[in-house]
Design a protein around this nucleic acid. Structure first.
Length: 569
DNA sequence: TCTGCCACATA
DNA sequence: CTATGTGGCAG
């Protein structure tokens, strides 16, 4: 039953300030040094608990530039990658322990936005949260040594606005603000799920928050993308600094107004990141498993700069770290793995894919979408076999650790409340391929599935005042917090599910836990986690069974390299 | 608002 | 070469 929890974890560990900001962020070339060893002598250190893992956001400077302007990420029906890409450098892991790394993208608040007058404004209440999906890094599970060896890239993660997306991409609503989160789940064989020490940590970099759009709203963001994303080179002006005219493709050949020039310039100017590093205010705290912290509004001072959009530099972005140790309560399913993939009628998938704005309810139902028709390409998504290459960038990665907290995100926006995400359930998504890990939600709290404000029960971790009265606990300033895995009191108390078997992992999400059972290995993919697990449990189990297919452990990943991006070719 | 197509880019 | 990631623009 329970064991101790890691409670309090948060000490300052990640709270250090980091500020070293280099003026030139643009520099992006890959460099070799990424793989440098972790700081110090820690090698010998006994503390290799999950809560001691340090996560540094790669290209934080670039993220900050976007953040200051109000990051926007395009979402399309087919799925669009994020830019900047989410890449991190890890240290402090036990080299021999296996971990699963995954990302989820949760609502940052419960507003709907509109871009008016060159600014983002709140335009109503958010749509019900979409069922959440998880993107599991293709190399998962892998030993700590593997993850620490080089940058870990999540660049293949794709965002979609298709509520019925059959590919396993992360589904989002347009014009809403989101916060990506990284979860590190211990997957050692010895920590099988039901065993006692399964633990996970959640890290949140505020500067990675963004507003989803179907087409860019803020011109400044467009320019930043063009200037920094290698795939958008075709839109860059011919020369560097000068004529910032952009090529136009296709049909009309027009040139762009000088405005772009200004933007560019400004961008350069923005070097004013001030670091004031300071703040570390926060100590991470422990939360119940459901809490989540979202970004807050910063002071809004609005800036008045030549460019309207310019946002006051936010303070440092913080990193939120959340960790749990979890023990038995989780339930877990066994997978029987046998088939390589599910056989859902393809028709279903197509239907989903093509249908337009579906209600997402259907997605709540655990239903395997897979159809064999998926091409290898999709397979890769799940399978994650491809190596990722680094796109962009590159600069060296940041070296420092823990970011201080920050809360401000887009100043121009109205304050955000810290929104609890609990209501969002993870959408069960059957992976098409067996090799993916199966995720089982483990404790789900009866969260409402979509509830806009579900927080009812959980405490929220937030930092800012909650707007709506969300229960908030304190907001940790930055970075990280850990929580005991044990579930919060209210969590589901009863779950006791089956026990795990192989490597089980639990990841916490806003809603609750996810238990990931990996049989063998799985490759990157997006896994759904259901929300009211209890309610859907049977279905999920079935789904998982199918998903993992049966035959046992899946072959190990084919290509690994999470970091292929590191190497420069 | 969103989608499909385009030229141009990476890999 | 192929496959695929970009933003612009027309619709």
């Amino acid at each position: 039953m329970l064991q101790e929890k890691v409670s309090a974890v948060t000490d300052g560990r990640m709270s250090r300030v980091q500020d070293a900001i280099q003026p030139d962020l643009l520099s992006q070339e890959p460099r070799p040094d990424l793989s440098t060893a972790p700081t110090v002598p820690s090698a010998s250190e006994p503390n290799q608990n999950i809560e001691n893992i340090k996560v540094v956001l790669h290209e934080r400077e670039l993220w900050k530039k976007f953040h200051e302007a109000g990051t926007e990420m395009i979402i399309t029906k087919a799925g669009r990658r994020m830019f900047p890409s989410y890449k991190v450098k890890l240290t402090g892991m036990n080299p021999k322990t296996k971990y699963i790394l995954l990302i989820d993208v949760v609502p940052a608040d419960d507003h709907r936005y509109k871009f008016c007058d060159n600014k983002w404004m709140v335009a109503g209440k958010a749509e019900p949260a979409m069922p959440g999906r998880l993107y599991v890094h293709p190399d998962s599970p892998a030993a700590g040594a593997h993850w620490m060896r080089q940058l870990v890239s999540f660049q293949k993660l794709k965002l979609t606005n298709n509520h019925l997306d059959p590919f396993g991409h992360i589904i989002l609503n347009s014009m809403h603000k989101y916060q990506p989160r990284l979860h590190i789940v211990k997957a050692d064989e010895n920590n099988a799920f039901g065993s006692k020490n399964t633990a996970y940590c959640t890290h949140v970099f505020h500067e990675t928050a963004f507003i989803s759009v179907t087409s860019y709203q803020n011109h400044k963001i467009t320019q930043l993308k063009i200037e920094n994303n290698p795939f958008a080179k075709g839109f860059r002006g011919s020369e560097e600094g000068d004529p910032a005219y952009f090529k136009t493709t296709g049909v009309s050949d027009k040139e762009y107004p000088p405005i772009s020039k200004n933007s560019v310039r400004q961008r350069l100017i923005s070097s004013h990141n001030h670091l004031a590093g300071k703040l570390m205010t926060g100590h991470p705290q422990v939360l119940s498993s459901y809490q989540y912290e979202a970004g807050l509004p910063l002071a809004n001072s609005d800036s008045q700069d030549p460019i309207p959009n310019h946002f006051p530099p936010s303070r440092d972005p913080g990193l939120l770290y959340h960790c749990f140790k979890h023990r038995d309560n989780s339930r877990h399913l066994e997978l029987g793995c046998k088939r390589p993939f599910l056989e859902t009628p393809s028709a279903v998938s197509e239907e989903h894919y093509f249908r337009s704005a579906p209600s997402y309810e259907s997605s709540l139902l655990p239903r395997p979408y897979h159809n064999e028709a998926f091409s290898a390409r999709e397979a890769c998504m799940y399978g994650g076999m491809e190596a990722e290459s680094g796109s962009g960038a590159g600069d060296v990665d940041d070296v420092n650790h823990s970011p201080p907290m920050n809360r401000g995100m887009w100043a121009t926006m109205p304050p955000y409340p810290r929104y609890t995400v609990d209501g969002v359930a993870y959408q069960p998504f059957a992976a098409h391929f067996a090799n993916t890990a199966a995720v089982t939600p483990v404790v789900p709290h009866p969260a409402s599935t979509m509830a806009p404000r579900p927080q009812s029960d959980l405490g929220v971790f937030n930092s800012a005042p909650a707007q709506r009265g969300l229960p908030v606990i304190s907001p940790p300033p930055s970075a990280s917090s850990c929580a005991p895995a044990t579930l919060a009191p209210r969590d589901r108390s009863d779950h006791g599910g089956p026990v795990p078997q192989e490597a089980g992992v639990a990841a916490a999400t806003s809603q609750g836990f996810l238990s990931v059972s990996l049989t063998g290995c799985h490759q990157g993919s997006i896994l759904p986690v259901p929300d009211g697990f209890e309610q859907h449990r049977d279905t999920l189990e079935r789904q998982l069974m199918q998903t993992t297919g049966g035959t046992g452990p899946v072959p190990i990943k084919v290509s690994l390299t999470p970091s292929s991006h590191l190497h420069h070719h």
